[in-house]
Each structure stands twice: as C-alpha cells, then as structure tokens.
Amino acid sequence: MTRSVPQSRFLAPATLAAIHDLRLVARRVVEGFLAGEHVDRRPGAGIEFSQYRGFEPGDDPRTIDWRAYARSDRFYVREAEVERDITVRLVLDATASMAHEDGGVRKLDYGRMLTAALAYLADRQGDRVSFHAVLDGTTADLPARRGRRGLRRVLHRLEGIAPSGAWPPWETLGRRITNVREKELVVVVGDLYDRGPEMRRGLATLRTLGHEVLVLHLMARNELDFTYRGDLAFEDLETGAIVRGNAEAMRPGYLERLGASLERWRVELLEAGVTYELLALDRPLDLALRSFLLRRGRLP
C-alpha cells in the first residue's frame, strides 16, 4: 500500500547527477521514497518472532513451541516474519546510445542512479543483488550476493561504467542473466535501442521461466518531445550514422514513429506479462522504486 508523498522530497535527477557519491545518491533517493511507503510484511515461517497462535490440524508439528507447551500445557505455534529471501537481478544498458544527453544529464547517469537506488533498496529489504552492465556487445557481471559488501561492489562497479558498444545478441546475454533454479526479480534499465527483436525475445524468455521482469525504459525529454530547432545533423551514438534535416520539418514524422514504437513496446510487454515503465530523464526516481516494490511483492 502506498500513500501520497510530497514531490519535494525527491531531488531532481539533474541535482542528483551532481553528487559524485553514488551511495549517497542511492540512500538519499531510497530514504526519501520509503518515508512515504508501508513496507509489505506477511507472517509465516522465519527467524524474527511475530506472534503465538493455537495449533490447528494441518500445522506442521515441528512448528509447536514446546516451551510454551511446558508453561501452559497447550499447543502453541510460534509464528515469525516471513523471510523473503529473493534475488534481484539488475541489468543496466551501458551501450553507446546511453550517452544521449538532455539538460546536462546523460541517460547512463540517470540509469546509474536508478540502479544504485534499486540496489540500495533491495539490500535494505535483505535481498540478494546481482548486477549486469550490458556494454560493448557483452556484459560485466557481479554474481548475486547479500549484505553491505555486495551493495558496495555493485556501487563500485556502477561508478566505473562508461557507455560503449551495442546491445549483444540474446545468445550471449541470456546465458549470463538467466537463472533456471529459482525465481528472481529481473530489472532491466535502458533505452531499448536494440537492433532486431533481441530484447523482446529475451524478456519473453525470462517471463516464461517464471521470473518477475520489470523494464524501466529511459527516454530523454528532447527525445520524447523532439525539442530540437533549426537545421541540424543528427548523429547516431551507436552506429555513427548521420541524418541531416530541419528539426521542425522532421518533428511530425518523428513523433509519429516514436509514439508507435513506444506503444508497441507497451503492448507487447504487457502481453508477455512484463511490467513496463517509461521514465523521462527529468522525472524523479520514485516512480521506478514504487514499481520495483510492487513487482517484488508478487514474488512468493
């Protein structure tokens, strides 16, 4: 359950980007966000004590608290908070196209902050965090680990990432990020500029394996609204291709094609059961965090 949170508690991405300490950024974002959230807790088998209740037929006899029986001569079952020990797999797109900039903030900067905040939040929840940076046709991986040390490794790796290369084929990527033994929460942060159906196919595969998949689609405001003016030469950050033309003349066609593409992403991922969030770089990070918690709550 959520309640309304004052917008002022969230710092603007451009402000956060000016903070070089990624851990500080993550903590600032998450603490600000959690101040307005009720953490979802369910009773069940676990370590931390929650309550006693009377033994009922069907309960596991091993759950009977014999000390309580000795004191009261009645059977009680000790309940504790359920330990939701899951793995959060963070996949950050660090290809060359993530160098796209708007208002002094690159997509990669935003994605880096977002990933750090998610890792921090997952660590707070006691989850294991694994991290994959997709760059230069391959991935840089950190295996799942719980605790402060694991968080530190993720943050350290995030700080050293520079955008390069293109999105790798699924044969390369899938092998590294797919876990068939247990269900995970897979979070993909990127601009989804793949060449071909690679990403759609991969996301559908993850979903088929039973993972919760959250796609955070990063788009700059100047991409969404095409705010360019005048005669320009547009250079593709990944391919180097150049398209020349007048921005005003290009705008209607561009917006039409972009809108169709975004709608296609949304529909296809919805059909595949993948949660899709379109994030503009000028928006605070809380939207992504809220969606993350929602997806996480779906896992057993």
């Binding site: 196209s97 993530m98 160098a99 796209h100 900039e101 997509k107 601009d191 500029y193 700059a220 991409e223 360019y228 005048g230 005669d231 320009l232 030469a233 547009f234 250079e235 593709d236 950050l237 990944e238 391919t239 291709a241 150049i242 398209v243 020349r244 033309g245 007048n246 005003e248 003349a249 290009m250 209607p252 066609g253 561009y254 094609r257 972009l258 593409s261």
Partner: peptide
C-alpha cells in the same frame, strides 16, 4: 551562414528520423 552551417547533435538513435526532403522543408 545559417544555411551553410549545420549544428551536429548526437542522439541515442536516428531510427525515427527521416531526412527532411519533404514538402514542409521546401516550404520552409
């Protein structure tokens, strides 16, 4: 000068851009 000089803008992808050889560009 404004006709001959084209500022270069680096974008994530040019896939949605079509060269502006359109009637609107001619009108412009």
């Amino acid at each position: 000068l404004s006709r001959g000089r084209q500022r270069r803008v680096r974008v994530g992808s040019v896939r949605w851009l079509a060269p502006a050889a359109t009637a609107r560009a001619r009108r412009l």
